[in-house]
Amino acid sequence: MSAATIAGGSRQPRFSTKQKLLAILGIYVLGIVVIGVLAGGGSRNASYEPQNEFKLENWVPIHLAGVDFSITKAVMYLLIAATLTCVSMIYIARRMRQRPNRVQTAVEMIFNLLRENIVAGNMDKKMAARWFPFIATLFLFILFSNLIGYIPLPTNIEHKISVFGLQIPSFSLYAATANLSIPLVLALVVFIAYTTEGIRAKGPLGYLKGLIPAGVSGGMAVPIFILEILSNLMRLLSLSIRLFANVLAGHLLILFMSGALAVLLGVAALGWFTLPLGIALFAFEVTLVAALQAFIFATLTAIYLAGAVADHH
């Protein structure tokens, strides 16, 4: 029996997983070398400014009473996020079935997470019923904003690409939540919401008194009261900057790893080298950071609301 018949008769795959992985690694290393030799180390690119990826141009200038209401990339992303949130949720709400399909099951899981863990886990039943829509909308709105931020959309009018003679803006990543204004407004709304709730529950003086932790009295009460007021205002910053900085940093990392670094330094091989990192970061941001940040924002909102009406915090 010859070796050929054995080889022909066996039904094993031609390459093992290990061999495939080695081949991919080989192509990767070879690519770096080839691009490095062919393109070489070019000059550094001084004109490219990566932060301009996040710059807002006035697409439709609107000025009312001295305030700039112009439609920008951020406004467009806001509108897309809001539309997607409303359309998908209302669509799912309208076709709720007793026996759910996969999408409904996923939405129900998120809904239950919001209802049971975030809202009902922090406040009593009556308060939970009142504040659930607010917290759920916050979560979904931030989640959708974060997620569409990872879909490349033709929004970069600084650089155009030609498609059959048609000049269309380059595709780029952006996120409404990567702009401080937007998380700041949401944090402000949360701040106003829990302060109002606290004052409604205890009265203005009672609420201010409630800021002083239990057991503190006498001379120490005054500085601690000031600290508590400051910490309340700091929540505004921590809430908004946590979201903003996470999303912005994620986008910058993806941007740099997926080519910006190579463009900036003029080393083409670097782009090939960092691309896998860019892909890995992209997956990490989409699967974890987007939902995690929305979850944190919603959970903190629930905790602040519950803390505002609690007897002592």
Binding site: Q51, L56, A74, L78, F141, A176, N179, L180, S181, V185
Partner: peptide, 17 residues
Amino acid sequence: FLVKPGIGLMIWTLLVF
């Protein structure tokens, strides 16, 4: 500009939210 809040955008956000 990354960390400078714009009033117009903030009002947009409020409205949309």
